[in-house]
């Protein structure tokens, strides 16, 4: 009945807007991510009190909060499709590439929203230096892309498992380990008032990680999704 074909971008955006609409109506993933991020940050700041944190500790704390916040909500996009039994209709209607890209955009939006709330709070609660913001933002953007590109494909893999939560963290950890080490190292230098040029090796690695992980995920997803 309906006619005229649409490209990959509009098919991906259809998945993205569907997920956004469902999320705004149910708030299942966003609430989980925000609650985890805010409560962890509050606990950390109250525990540390007025302690002077070293750049290394500050950097590690920030990315630990980001990592576990991502773990608490980013898998929902695929788990919800499996648990509500809608993945079958999606499989029979949409191609794998548009589903993966739509879910990737959705997770990117979720983590960006969370980052916009958590990051200013982190700077306020921990007294992190704010005189070197631009390099921090560069690392932050790459970190968000890296976390999302890795966790989206792992979420697709674990969606059918019975112990999803534990499996998500266990499978994500080795993939994200190198990313987190690089992010912590780059942030530490930035909190230590070094320039973006001083973190060039980490930034180059982060860019390569995002490109490789996203490309590999797109290639792998069609096999994960069909099976």
């Amino acid at each position: 009945m309906p006619k005229s074909s649409a490209g990959l971008l509009s098919r991906s955006l259809a998945v993205y807007f569907k997920d956004m609409r469902l999320e705004l109506r149910t708030r299942s993933a966003l609430n989980a991510i925000l609650m985890f991020g805010v409560t962890t940050l509050a606990v950390v700041s109250f525990s540390l009190g007025q302690s002077n944190l070293s750049p290394k500790i500050m950097s590690a704390l920030f990315w630990v909060i980001m990592f576990f916040s991502a773990m608490s909500g980013l898998a929902q996009t695929f788990i919800r499709e499996e648990e509500t039994g809608t993945s079958l209709a999606l499989k029979l209607t949409a191609d794998a590439d548009s589903i993966y890209l739509g879910k990737l955009f959705f997770n990117l939006t979720l983590l960006t929203m969370m980052t916009l709330i958590i990051t200013p709070m982190f700077f306020i609660f921990t007294d992190a230096p704010t005189n070197n913001l631009f390099p921090f933002l560069v690392v932050l953007v790459l970190g968000v892309f890296g976390l999302v590109s890795a966790t989206t494909i792992v979420a697709a893999i674990i969606a059918k498992a019975s112990t999803k939560g534990a499996l998500f963290a266990v499978l994500s950890f080795p993939i994200l380990m190198v990313l987190l080490m690089s992010l912590v190292s780059a942030s530490e230098k930035i909190f230590d008032n070094q320039t973006l040029a001083d973190t060039s090796s980490e930034v180059q690695f982060l860019i390569a990680y995002v490109v490789v992980m996203t490309t590999a995920s797109i290639l792998l997803f069609k096999f994960v999704w069909r099976e």
Binding site: S4, S5, R11, K18, L22, T84
Partner: peptide, 20 residues
């Protein structure tokens, strides 16, 4: 999708298949 209306379901499954 339970949290979409019937019209939204039909529109979604049309668009995601590349049609209007």
């Amino acid at each position: 999708y339970d949290h979409l209306t019937a019209e939204e379901n039909l529109k979604f499954f049309t668009t995601v298949a590349g049609n209007t």
